[in-house]
């Protein structure tokens, strides 16, 4: 069917009228701050207490914008007769945000969780040299790092929490068992109930003996 003459014109009018009734897309930025997702790549914060000066971030950085200086200090032996240990102390940690391309590799690669993304983005400078944020400034950004967003409903439990829960469950079972045994030892065992013994320690590993030290079980589990 050929289109009705003028229907294109009417369609054009409808498009503009419909757009007028919709919400505008204008972001009124300086007046209204944008709502940024928690993982926004605004600026990189340094949690320097966690940093061990392993230099992984500086080495992985594609545009070499991380500067790290450090020196070694000797820590006296912890126990008498022991050996002295040496330890890295951070002297300078700087990120040149004029060079940074916000790839986030440094944050991914950090094995000690010392680097974090912060959504803050308003750090423009009039001098390019001031875009090199030194250690104290990077530490200040840490206060702006938001807590990680909540997991999606039905998501897999984080590995750390799963491991911790397993350990806690085991410890609890162990304690319950020991308590039950102690109770049993107190009683002169005339009224021994048949159902009590199997139900005493749920979740206990079959080969585990009651005399085993409590600390050993989680370690064995952790190796799985």
């Amino acid at each position: 069917m050929p289109p009705i003459p003028g229907s294109g014109l009417a369609k054009g009018l409808a498009v503009t009228l419909r757009t007028m009734t919709k919400r505008t897309v204008t972001a009124q930025y300086p007046d209204v701050q944008p709502e940024l997702p928690p993982r926004t790549r605004g600026v990189i914060g340094l949690f320097e207490e966690n940093c061990t000066v392993c230099m992984l971030c500086a080495r992985e950085c594609p545009d070499w914008c991380i500067y790290i200086d450090s020196h070694k200090e000797t820590v006296p032996a912890a126990a008498p007769g022991g050996r002295e240990r040496s330890r890295n102390v951070l002297d300078r940690f700087a990120i040149d945000f004029a060079l940074c391309m916000y790839c986030g590799i440094c944050i991914e690669v950090c094995p000690f969780d010392a680097l974090f993304w912060s959504p803050e983005f308003e750090y423009a400078e009039t001098d390019i040299h001031e875009l090199t944020h030194e250690r104290d400034k990077l530490r200040e950004w840490m206060w702006t790092v938001p807590e990680p967003p909540a997991l999606d409903p039905g998501a897999e439990e984080p590995k750390e929490i799963a491991a911790a829960r397993k350990t806690a469950d085991k410890l609890q079972a162990q304690e319950a068992k020991e308590a039950a045994e102690a109770q049993e030892a107190e009683q002169p065992r005339p009224g021994e109930t048949p159902g009590q013994t199997p139900g005493q320690a749920p979740g206990q590993a079959p080969g585990q003996t009651p005399g085993q030290a409590p600390g050993q079980a989680p370690e064995a589990e952790g190796q799985e």
Binding site: T16, L17, T19, M20, K22, T24, V25, T26, Q28
Partner: peptide, 13 residues
């Protein structure tokens, strides 16, 4: 204002 809103903008504010 009308032109701005028809183009998804806000116009003078």
């Amino acid at each position: 204002k009308v032109m701005a809103h028809m183009q998804g903008r806000l116009g003078p504010m």
